[in-house]
Amino acid sequence: MLTHVVVIGAGVYGAAVAAGLTRRGARVTVVDAGAPAGGTSGATFSWTNSCGKQPRAYHDLSVASMAAHRRLAAEAPQGDWYHEGGNLEWAEGEAARAGLRAKVAGVLDYGYEARWLDRADVLRLEPEMAPAELPPDGVAYFPREGWIDPAGLIGYLLATAVSGGAEVVRDDAVTGLEVTAAEVRAVRLASGRRLPVAAVVNCAGPQAAQVAALAGLVLPMRNTRGVLVYTSPVTVAVSRVVHAPRVHLRPDGDGRLLLHSPEIDGAAHPAAGGGYRVDQSAVDRVVEAAVALYPGIRAATVRGVRVGERPIPGDGLPVLGRAAELPNFHFAVSHSGATLSVHAGDLVAAEVLGEDRSAELAPFRFDRYRS
């Protein structure tokens, strides 16, 4: 058994990897420059899906990951972070409608659950939508999709890891990796602490490239920003993820709603004192679109605006598993971490401890960037 594994990052991936490692008997330290769930995992739309993901291996990994969420939520004493209410999506303009038709045809060809609804069908599912905002037909419905509460999931997974003996170190950034003879020997932290290791797992999300560089590895990343708007509690029943042309929204627990639109992602700008500022006009537009769709939420106020940095590897696909040139350095980095983390994180944990997961991980290895 490996004597000590350091997991860098305490988001959804880091928590899932740590839980998988401790369940298999490893001694684990999870380290994060901030607080658990304080980075991207705390500012994400967290939509669980495999809706149009390509190539087929990525789709299959996502479907297996959705099933892993269901199992974990069913097994956990309080699996209330997982919400499988389905996803409704429609488009405006012929080009966008053609794209949606192609997406639905593609997932149906893969055996993924999807069907077309008309306006009356949608109103039976979401009766408080404004009928005039819906097309007469052509609404795609993906019934097995949903959303997670990332903080709840991370809390459960880290508690599982800690009960198995893991240590969680917060507010202590990784500043160096000691590498000799093609092996990581130790992790150095900003506090001055030095952690001897048998293996390291890079779950650092948007900072994954910087952590990889400490090990002498070049990980291409093309991170993007995402702006999320959080409302006050509303007295309107919104039961599903909704992707309308001008607003994406979902429930966020305790009557709150989470709003997003790709159009406002560009309205986030670096602030002088750190962090980001978001143009108020962009926030107003996404709220207005939500009110047009659900008139009953007109009295809602904006309780918060968060900007998350989405970690996206250079080719858009996950980076998972060991690096061939540094075999005790492992990756668990991707976009769509809310969907993938429980399953993919466990696959990575299994490989760290010597299990053969080549069949599942081969399409996603870091080494594709070396060829």
Rank of each mutant, 00 (worst) to 15 (best):
A282K: 05
A282H: 06
D284N: 12
D284L: 11
D284Y: 10
D284E: 14
D284S: 09
R285T: 11
R285S: 15
R285H: 05
V286D: 03
V286G: 00
V287M: 15
E288V: 06
E288S: 15
A289S: 12
A289F: 04
A289N: 07
A289W: 00
A289K: 03
A290Y: 01
A290V: 09
V291D: 08
V291E: 06
A292D: 12
L293A: 11
L293N: 02
L293M: 10
Y294D: 11
Y294A: 12
P295L: 11
P295C: 09
G296S: 14
G296E: 11
G296N: 13
G296I: 10
I297K: 12
I297T: 12
I297Q: 09
I297L: 13
R298D: 14
R298E: 14
A300E: 03
A300F: 08
T301H: 08
T301W: 10
T301N: 12
R303E: 15
G304A: 06
G304N: 13
R306F: 06
G308L: 02
G308E: 02
G308F: 06
E309A: 05
R310Q: 07
R310P: 01
P311K: 04
P311L: 00
I312G: 03
I312P: 00
P313R: 00
P313S: 00
G314I: 05
D315Q: 02
D315T: 04
L317F: 01
L317G: 03
L317E: 03
P318S: 01
P318H: 04
P318D: 03
V319A: 03
V319R: 02
L320K: 00
L320I: 04
G321P: 01
R322F: 04
A324S: 15
A324K: 14
A324N: 12
E325N: 07
L326F: 11
P327D: 10
P327L: 14
P327N: 13
P327K: 13
P327E: 14
N328P: 10
N328R: 03
N328H: 11
F329V: 08
F329N: 04
F329C: 08
H330Y: 15
H330L: 15
H330M: 10
A332S: 13
S334D: 02
S334R: 05
H335T: 01
S336C: 08
S336T: 13
G337M: 09
G337H: 09
A338S: 15
T339N: 14
T339K: 11
L340E: 00
L340F: 09
S341K: 13
S341R: 09
S341L: 14
S341T: 11
S341N: 12
S341Y: 10
S341P: 08
V342S: 12
H343Q: 03
H343P: 01
D346S: 13
D346C: 09
D346R: 15
L347K: 08
A349N: 09
A349I: 04
A349F: 10
A350Y: 02
E351Y: 01
V352I: 06
V352C: 12
V352N: 04
V352Y: 02
L353C: 14
G354E: 01
E355M: 08
E355T: 03
E355K: 10
D356P: 07
R357V: 00
R357Y: 02
R357L: 02
